[in-house]
Simulated scan of single mutants.
Amino acid sequence: MKSIYDIQQFLKRFGTIIYVGDRIATLELMEEELKDLYQSQLIETKEFQSALLLLRHEIRMLKEEGTNPS
């Protein structure tokens, strides 16, 4: 997976669509859903790690963006 869009498409394969209107909250819920899928052994370790890394990076970038006045 190379983008947040890829993760969204991946989650759709499991019938999961997450959108709550707040970008960070949406990404955090996607992370929780990935954890649940992984703990249920429905996804491979590599898929889980790749998606988690992307999500956490995006969340960190958005939070930094929000704290730096422009």
Rank of each mutant, 00 (worst) to 15 (best):
L29E: 04
D36L: 13
Y38C: 00
K46Y: 10
T26Q: 06
R60G: 05
S50C: 13
R56I: 05
L54A: 08
E47R: 05
E58R: 11
L52G: 09
E58M: 06
Q49V: 15
M30L: 08
T26P: 07
T16R: 03
L53W: 13
T45H: 10
I18K: 09
V20N: 15
E33P: 04
I24K: 12
F14G: 00
E33Q: 11
L29C: 13
M30K: 04
R13Q: 14
I43R: 02
E47P: 01
L54H: 10
H57M: 14
L37A: 05
H57C: 10
K12G: 12
G15F: 03
T16M: 10
E44G: 06
E31N: 01
E32L: 13
E32K: 13
S40Q: 11
E31L: 01
L37D: 02
E31T: 01
T26H: 08
E44A: 11
A51W: 00
M30G: 03
I59T: 04
E28Q: 14
D22I: 13
V20C: 15
E31M: 00
K12F: 15
R13L: 15
R23Q: 15
E33V: 08
R13S: 14
A51K: 01
I43P: 00
E28L: 11
T26N: 06
F48G: 00
S40Y: 02
L34C: 04
D36Q: 08
L29H: 05
S40L: 08
L27F: 13
L54N: 07
F14H: 01
T26M: 11
K12D: 11
K35L: 12
F14C: 01
L53C: 15
R23F: 09
V20S: 15
L37P: 02
L11G: 05
D36I: 08
Y19C: 13
L29Y: 06
E32W: 09
L55N: 06
K35G: 11
K46G: 07
Y38V: 02
I18C: 12
G21D: 04
L54D: 07
L53P: 02
T16V: 15
T45E: 14
L54F: 05
L27C: 06
T26K: 03
T26R: 04
L55T: 06
L29D: 03
A51D: 04
I24V: 15
L42Q: 07
G21L: 04
I17W: 06
I18Y: 08
R56E: 12
L29A: 10
F14E: 00
Y38W: 06
V20I: 14
H57N: 14
I43F: 03
Q41I: 05
F14K: 00
S40N: 07
S40C: 08
Y38E: 05
E44T: 07
T16Q: 03
D36N: 10
I17V: 15
R60Q: 12
F48V: 03
I59K: 06
K35A: 13
E47M: 06
K12R: 15
F14T: 00
T26D: 09
T26G: 10
E31K: 04
L34V: 05
E32G: 11
L34A: 04
Q49P: 04
I18F: 14
Q41V: 08
E47V: 06
Y38F: 11
E47Y: 09
A51Q: 01
R60D: 05
